[in-house]
């Protein structure tokens, strides 16, 4: 007997050769099934002619403008962030230097005093640099430095991985 499932399979070309031969044979003597098949064929034909609704004109242009505006805003934000940090450091160093120079200028009246001050600064600097050199040339310090760098690199790697995973999770939740 031909049922609705067989009729639908016939319409969708899902019948095997054997099933198809049997279907064709049976339908010849089944007036009700013939009627249903006619109606189903008409339904399928009409559905195939269903028209696509067009998206609004300029949809693509409007959407792309939006995306480009948003992403350029983010890019600018990032560059401003770095520029402001660098500017802060430059300004701080310039400020400290300026303050030191003004102190030297106002604090010491005679040339001899100024020379004395400059001499002292040189001594402190050369002494400090000498000590720093001594510390850095120490083997233990080199090992500690290398260790610290290694730890920093590993932490950085995990931080980035963690951020990536978090971003992926966030994206998965968004759809």
């Amino acid at each position: 007997m031909i049922n609705d499932e067989l009729l639908n399979k016939y319409i969708d070309n899902e019948l095997t050769d054997v099933e198809l031969a049997e279907f064709k044979k049976e339908i010849q003597t089944d007036a009700e099934a013939q009627n249903k098949l006619k109606a189903l064929k008409l339904t399928d034909e009409i559905l195939n002619k269903m028209e696509v609704n067009r998206a609004p004109v300029n949809f693509t242009e409007m959407f792309m403008k939006k995306i480009i505006t948003v992403s350029s805003f983010h890019k600018e934000k990032v560059s401003y962030f770095f520029v402001s940090i660098i500017s802060f450091f430059v300004l701080t160093i310039t400020g400290i230097l300026g303050y030191s120079i003004s102190k030297i200028e106002s604090g010491s009246s005679s040339i001899a005093e100024k020379n004395q001050y400059v001499q002292k600064t040189k001594e402190v600097l050369s002494g400090g640099l000498g000590e720093l050199n001594a510390i850095l040339s120490n083997d233990n310090m080199l090992l500690i430095g290398a260790g610290l760098t290694f730890v920093l690199l590993i932490s950085g790697y995990f931080l980035i991985e963690n951020h990536k995973n978090f971003k992926e999770k966030l994206n998965r939740f968004s759809h």
């Binding site: 609705d4 499932e5 639908n8 319409i11 009627n35 249903k36 006619k38 109606a39 189903l40 064929k41 008409l42 339904t43 399928d44 034909e45 559905l47």
Partner: peptide, 22 residues
């Protein structure tokens, strides 16, 4: 879902004898 939807539309065509058009 697909078969049920299509069959319900088919039954409507049958109800109004539209299948006789073809």
């Amino acid at each position: 879902l697909l078969h049920r939807s299509r069959n319900s539309l088919r039954d409507l065509l049958l109800k109004h004898n539209y299948q006789e058009v073809i």
